[in-house]
Design a protein around this nucleic acid. Sequence first.
DNA 1: CGCGAGCTTGACGTTGTTCAACTAGAGTGG
DNA 2: CCACTCTAGTTGAACAACGTCAAGCTCGCG
Lengths: 234, 234
Amino acid sequence: MTNKISMANNIISCLHCKNKSSCFEKLSDEELQFMNNHRVEIKFKKGEIICKQGSMASNIMYLKNGLAKLYFEKNKQKNLILRIISTGSMFALPSISNNILYYSAMSYEDSHVCMIDIDVFKNVMNNNAKFASEVVDIINENTIQGYERMYCLTQNHLSGRMANILLCLSENIYKNDAFELQLSRRDIAELTNMSVESVTRILRGFKDENLIELNGKHLKIMSRENLSKICEVG
Amino acid sequence: MTNKISMANNIISCLHCKNKSSCFEKLSDEELQFMNNHRVEIKFKKGEIICKQGSMASNIMYLKNGLAKLYFEKNKQKNLILRIISTGSMFALPSISNNILYYSAMSYEDSHVCMIDIDVFKNVMNNNAKFASEVVDIINENTIQGYERMYCLTQNHLSGRMANILLCLSENIYKNDAFELQLSRRDIAELTNMSVESVTRILRGFKDENLIELNGKHLKIMSRENLSKICEVG
DNA sequence: CGCGAGCTTGACGTTGTTCAACTAGAGTGG
DNA sequence: CCACTCTAGTTGAACAACGTCAAGCTCGCG
């Protein structure tokens, strides 16, 4: 079975994994082992599709490391990025309540994903209230993040949205003022819901005003305060 | 205590209430009684604020009947409506994981709201896995609704957003092709994230094309198909 | 050396907001 | 019962914000 092939990579059991999601702290050793027995770990290369909207929801996912986008596809129009996830994020959680996967995921860089059998996950959740409560917390956090994103995309102008994304990348993803921006202009356009040309123009504007330094892929936030201000004003 | 004053209205205990949220079906009689003992039921008149963003989160809310909006306030800019809720909706669920209320709520029409002590709610959730799992389901449904809304607001043009809202009102809220539109032009503008003037123009356009009938507050969907098409195309 | 993808730039068109003027009904007070 | 005001709604014209299009640039790679 695929299970066997993939299990070859699973040197570390969930029991001893240091990187597991906080909710798993609430599980007994038996429950953890049970999860571990119904879990595979898969490596995705940059740009590969991790899961596809509309397919049967058979796993709960965990990004053990890497960077990826969760996005919503509809018609032939452009996609909407719902969330970017980095190391340590659970995703596909709506699948718990829905047989069909609600969004697609694609890796921005090489990533390792743990996939846990959804029935096993549900089973544990239905028998361990503390675990289920932790799951509620995780979903709630995602909900709030989603609302923030909705606010930003609908109420802010181009520069506000760009400032928001740059700060978000710096604070939540790369955790540094300076970072190598892996994302293409197209990726940023998708994230900020603007055209590629506008991305260029806005970034150039930020550069001209010394809000950022930008050389090739290397980006450095020069004035966090001013960017925040732009973000607030719109 | 306020409790006593409000309890005067609570003729029906949760135990015998026919309108309670589905998640409460998973509770034992004792748990239901426990909830009931820490619950108040409050009537809000049209336009009254039910809860205010930023205040301490002391209750989980349930809209026993009525219509209300959940909205996000920020700066002095216009608000963003996160969700409209009608009879039978739980809200303020992110409060489970957050001490501060994340959004405000205001009634569109006279409404009855059950407020359950948040510590009691959490307590039950931490001890009844089936209940907690139901809560997960409810939150997940809200998440998906939120993503749909985000997609609509960010990817669709004015007419697409208006068509979407009209269909949503007809299908999910009033459950009828024809209905008395309680919402003002300003309310609709907020819902569709457009200016009041644009609301007028788009509605007039729909009327001219015989997609809807509109006399004062009375609105009737004439061509569900064409509205859906507008909604799809954008 | 030449090709192509990703990026940049400027000109132009579209979409939607803003502003100001106007209309229609719904109280309100004399 | 009649002005008076106030708010909600409508309409048109000017304007701003962005996207689209077309052209040119750059850099890595065969």
